[in-house]
Nucleic acid binder design. Sequence first.
DNA 1: CAGTGTTTTCTAGCATCGCTAGGATTGCTA
DNA 2: TAGCAATCCTAGCGATGCTAGAAAACACTG
Lengths: 188, 188
Amino acid sequence: MTQRQRRVRDRTERAQRIVSAARELAEAEGWDAVTTRKLAALIEYSQPVLYSHFPGGKDAIMAAAALEGFAELVSVLGTARRDGLAGVAAAYVEFADAKPALYDAMFTLASELRFAEDDTPEVMKANFAELLAVIEPVAGTQNAGPLTEVFWSTLHGLVTLDRGHRLSPAHRDERLALVVARFGTRGD
Amino acid sequence: MTQRQRRVRDRTERAQRIVSAARELAEAEGWDAVTTRKLAALIEYSQPVLYSHFPGGKDAIMAAAALEGFAELVSVLGTARRDGLAGVAAAYVEFADAKPALYDAMFTLASELRFAEDDTPEVMKANFAELLAVIEPVAGTQNAGPLTEVFWSTLHGLVTLDRGHRLSPAHRDERLALVVARFGTRGD
DNA sequence: CAGTGTTTTCTAGCATCGCTAGGATTGCTA
DNA sequence: TAGCAATCCTAGCGATGCTAGAAAACACTG
């Protein structure tokens, strides 16, 4: 039965190549430039092969990329946690800045994936847990969960508004410092 | 020359009908459902007429809708200012909640419009000014401009993450209260 | 080894999208 | 009324996501 095993291994490898190709292309030219035809050409197969791996089509491929992104982000935040809330905040925006297309797939697009529900992937909950870990010490009498959501919203808002050229480029660092000033101390 | 006047008036009226139809359709079925063919059918003209009004095509129509949204938002925030920072924050998320497609056009889509640049429309600056007005009293030694950007990012993040089902629906009000708690007092 | 059946893959095509060229129609002017 | 100018529509282009059905490759059995 090693033949079976090899075949499934080949399949998973090819699925991975699809997602990787999608990510590279999206990061280079944006998700609009990621078409099923280009992806098929990149992996050197025909279009229908994509749908045999991802029946949901392009959306499913983006969702798969988003899941990879969540795994990478949780790793980044885990490392940054030793630098406290300031470190986590900086690491978050740095991640979004380094991989903008991936960040879009994770949060702006990919409406399939849902938070705070039964079928929420563990890796997405893990991201929230990382943020919660640095918020809890400064929550005081405030509810740590909702406060983490607000903190997260601030970071997410900074990222997305900055990307849309809505914020002054000169004050990027100052904004991060203000986030720390407003969230980094106990609020009672 | 009243004929000329009537003709230009008819043209502006028709342009308005295009934008209104786009907004209604987007609010009902999302911007993906807003196609040039449907818009043409709604205003009872053919497709090319749309391009005579908006050479930029669909993007330009969305930008026009976004500009209307900015005007409406600045009005909403102006009214809410008497209720201070808490009132403005609540009014902001309420606006985004009541007109989600319009909000998307204003901030998520419509990359044509840029903030903090020379050609930024006045109505967009006015929105920032409204937020600045309620932040200035609580800025303390902090820079009011960047602090307003952070405050704004928080509101924007709350809106967008909530829309993507990323936040717990049960804590909506509590999150707003926490925003007020973190931004509503002087930070030195 | 030949033949059969299953699985995998590709070719070809559908419906729809944004957008536009060129002709037809309309309305104004002289 | 003839000619001109502005306006509008028909028809079509290229590209999109996606899929049905034929073709090829593979695995297994007698």
